[in-house]
Amino acid sequence: MRRREYWILILPSIFVMFGLLLIPIYRTIEWSLKDVNYGEAGTFVGLDNYVRALTDPRFGSSVLFTVGLTLSVMVVVIVLGYILAVLVNNLGKMRPLVLGIILISYVIPNVVGATMFSWLFDGNFGGVANVVIGWFTDHDVLWFTETWPNRIMVGLNIVWAMLPFSMLILLAGLQGVPREIIEAAKIDGAGTMGRHLHIILPSIRGMVGFVAIITIMDVLRVFDNLIPLAPNAVLNGNETIALYTYNMAFQDGGQELGLGSVINVLTILIMLVMLIPFIRNTMKEAKSA
């Protein structure tokens, strides 16, 4: 491909991406060094905002919680997604129905899905999950105030929302696995588990990686789910980084753009660290392709 052609083809996309995304990033970095309100120029304060964020224990614990949440959701979503993909792949006539049902939770807006989800656990709205639990035990689970029950509920909600994506991608991967590979494994006498672990999974490595990237990106910035699900997030240590940003900078019509931007910059850095393996992979692949 000629150079000129390459650039003609690629420029509109670069223009849109860089034009609309690079300016915001530049602005974010600029604001992170300033004391600034909406629509004002602000005053330069150097690294003050960074010091403020980094010395706040709440920021540290929100980073820990978010990273932990991200990693555990990622594992659950991949394992469960794979099992579901295998099962759905074996379905016949029921396949479109089952796929359609499983897809729904992925396409509903987070804030709406999370609110519906919270009604299942909130006695003030019927709390059907509590009724079911009540059949087995007299113990009231305090889903919204106690740290671990709340974590589990939040985690369940995010898995609920992300599972369809994972299953879909892994299902697509499974369909690309040549029949011979599976057959060959059978002839070797490998058990079911072994066949999946050693033959099929490695051959859809790429898909698993793709699910991992997207899950990391999306869970690391979880925000709107927590509004209905974790009203006590600050008290019980279940504040995500994005929620921390919101609480510190923008709640109650606050406009601490400087501090908010600092946390955004730091989030980008955390994200980059978590993406290093994928970045290396892309570099290698693009060079050799």
Binding site: G123, F125, D140, W143, F144, T145, P231, N232, L235
Partner: peptide, 18 residues
């Protein structure tokens, strides 16, 4: 209620409605 720190006014209304 032990979860009263999650109650906004609509939830307090729910408590009375229910």
């Amino acid at each position: 209620d032990p979860q009263v720190t999650t109650f906004d006014q609509p939830k307090v209304q729910q408590q009375m409605y229910n």
